[in-house]
């Protein structure tokens, strides 16, 4: 067992972990953050994407012991239980989800991308948006409505709307 200190969504825990435990499982089981969804568990679907020190990372390809001292953010930290973050609202408006299983991964992958585009004050081509989210698989939407949601969020951020 390895002593590991992890902070998730601002909550710090000192854990004694088996090295083989995936960050995704520790977030779900030890932190009770069920917004971390596990699809394929081998890096092909993107559903488990979280932020490690602010950067999107596949939590199924990360051992929790590797995150000693790291700050993790999950989808719960975006817009809380009522999912009020600007990108989440855009997904609702544009019908960017149906079953919702892949949605936390898409949101965590694309939220920093929306910020990056807003900072550059630039609307990317659809192909660029599709490339940015190419590591996330959705079986319901056909992606078109997710692209539309991302475009809406970028437009709103460029117009100065707050994410919250």
């Amino acid at each position: 067992m390895s002593k590991t200190t992890i902070t998730a969504n601002g909550q710090t825990k000192n854990l004694s972990l088996e090295p083989r435990r995936l960050l995704a499982d520790v977030l779900r089981e030890d932190f009770r953050l069920s917004g971390v969804h596990i699809g394929c568990a081998h890096g092909a679907c993107g559903a488990c994407t979280v932020h490690v020190d602010g950067v999107p990372r596949l939590s199924c390809l990360t051992f929790a012991v590797q995150c000693d001292g790291a700050e993790i953010n999950t989808v719960e930290s975006l817009g809380g239980d009522d999912a009020h973050h600007l990108l989440q609202r855009a997904f609702r408006e544009e019908h960017g989800l149906q079953c919702g299983y892949c949605t936390p991964g898409f949101l965590m992958t694309m939220a920093p991308y929306v910020e990056e585009m807003a900072a550059q004050d630039r609307m990317p081509e659809d192909a660029e948006i599709r490339h940015a989210m190419s590591g996330n698989i959705c079986r319901c939407t056909g992606y078109q409505s997710i692209v539309a949601a991302v475009r809406l969020a970028i437009t709103q951020r460029r117009n100065g709307e707050s994410t919250q």
Binding site: G43, T49, T109, A132, G135
Partner: peptide, 9 residues
């Protein structure tokens, strides 16, 4: 190579 999240790591 891979996807953006994979390329970052």
């Amino acid at each position: 190579i891979g996807h953006p999240t994979i390329r970052r790591r």
